[in-house]
Nucleic acid binder design. Structure first.
Length: 288
DNA sequence: TTCTTTGTTCCGGA
DNA sequence: GTCCGGAACAAAGA
């Protein structure tokens, strides 16, 4: 599941591999992803050079010369593959074999200069790609309501405290609310609350100052660590092209229902239940 | 056939 | 009026 660290890693990979290349031909193999695709919109970026790749929350922004920007969200299963034509060599963050059965989910294929092909692949089709005018980005419906980036200085104790006033929402729901902080998804929020020793169902106005500090510190720490991990696994992968299972992630609680808590000497089994329709994992001994 | 997954929106109850 | 959270929706695979 692509969360902020994965999107950041993809961003860097795109930055390194397709900046300054020019779109030559685009093949669209589906009528819709999350939204209906308007093929005409894509004509505008033909023969346009890619000048920058940015990330905001879990969104990717690929800007071209001439005032158009590609806005992409990977949803649950979206992936970008960068393939060097003729060489069949994988150059991106995720495993890809040109012969693989995933081919049927290659929904958009961008041919670029330098014999580079950029492929948008998405099994579940919960992701999307839109072409926007670069000047409208700030007011874009997906971006304008987003809260601060979790890795920015704006995401600090004061901000957290001010936001919490008179609110009784559960801490887990708040951390997942994109208006509060942009880019945290279910997996990382489960992990952050475990590391911070806080039960996911605590009311936000009952979280004390020390705990707020812990949550913020751990949020930044875990994101930075995961970005570094993603980066290193990409490197390993390019070095040993063709090997599968390059992107392994180890979680403390996520998807570990019934397994023992990983803290030394804690024999409690990880519990699972739902908060706001999202699977929630926690250790009842370690989280208060 | 049913369940799972995420981000977002809608709506009912407190 | 405001706040909270459950339900629903998208698609496809197990």
């Amino acid at each position: 599941m692509p969360e902020l660290p994965e999107v950041e890693v993809v961003k860097k990979s795109l930055e390194n591999n397709i900046t300054n290349l020019v779109f030559k031909k685009i093949m669209i193999n589906t009528s819709k992803l999350r939204y209906i695709i308007n093929k005409n919109d894509f004509r505008g970026i033909i023969n346009k050079k890619i000048i920058s790749i940015k990330r905001r929350s879990k969104y990717l922004l690929i800007s071209t010369e001439g005032g158009l920007t590609i806005l992409a969200h990977l949803g649950m299963t979206g992936k970008f593959f960068i393939v060097k034509k003729n060489k069949m060599k994988i150059k991106t963050s995720f495993y890809y074999n040109l012969e693989s059965k995933d081919d049927k989910h290659n929904h958009i294929i961008f041919n670029l200069t330098n014999n580079i092909i950029l492929i948008y692949n998405d099994v579940r089709k919960f992701g999307f790609i839109k072409i926007l005018s670069s000047s409208s980005i700030e007011n874009n419906i997906h971006l304008k309501t987003l809260g601060p980036e979790p890795l920015s200085k704006k995401f600090n104790s004061k901000y957290f405290k001010d936001y919490s006033k008179n609110k009784r929402k559960k801490i887990k729901s708040v951390l997942m609310d994109q208006k509060f902080v942009a880019g945290l998804g279910n997996i990382y929020v489960n992990e952050i609350l475990y590391i911070s020793h806080i039960k996911p169902n605590r009311s936000i106005n009952k979280i004390n100052n020390l705990e707020i500090k812990k949550i913020i510190k751990n949020t930044k720490k875990i994101l930075v660590k995961s970005i570094k991990k993603g980066g290193s696994s990409i490197k390993d992968f390019i070095d040993s092209a063709g090997k599968e299972g390059s992107f392994q992630q180890n979680f403390y609680v996520y998807a570990r229902e019934g397994k023992k808590c990983l803290k030394i000497d804690c024999k409690t089994k990880i519990k699972k239940y739902f908060i706001a329709n999202r699977s929630t994992f926690f250790c009842k001994s370690c989280q208060k």
